[in-house]
Design a protein around this nucleic acid. Structure first.
Length: 104
DNA sequence: AAGATGACGCCCG
DNA sequence: CCGGGCGCCATCT
């Protein structure tokens, strides 16, 4: 599970973002958003900054949160008040249900 | 085996 | 928009 989640995170292209729940589902573990968090906290070498909360919210608190915004902005992701426009930057994982998609 | 721990998500007031 | 409460679930004490 751990590897599948990380592999999924690594698939998010630069300039795009995905939600914790979205990654979990795309990895094959719907509802396992918390495991995505666990994986990101644990693993290294993954584009963790491209994973955000539902609705495009930045959930990472403190310094790390600021770094995340910085990194995203650097990749061309617009951020408005701790928010990312998912319809604009949400990554669409392939082979995923329409109702979900990336914006989901 | 039981309880605690999250970068969560969703609903309600 | 902001809290608060509850469900979730692998992993770790």
């Amino acid at each position: 599970m751990f590897d599948r989640i990380l592999a999924t995170v690594r698939r998010i292209p630069k300039g795009k973002v995905a939600t914790y729940g979205g990654v979990a589902e795309a990895a094959g573990y719907p509802g396992a958003a918390r495991q995505v968090v666990w994986a990101l906290r644990t693993a290294k070498g993954v584009p963790w900054h491209r994973v955000i909360g539902a609705g495009g919210r930045i959930r990472l608190p403190g310094e790390a949160g600021l770094e995340q915004r910085l990194r995203l902005r650097t990749e061309g992701v617009a951020i408005e008040r701790d928010r990312v426009d998912l319809f604009l930057h949400g990554h669409r994982f392939r082979q995923q249900r329409e109702t979900e998609g990336s914006l989901n």
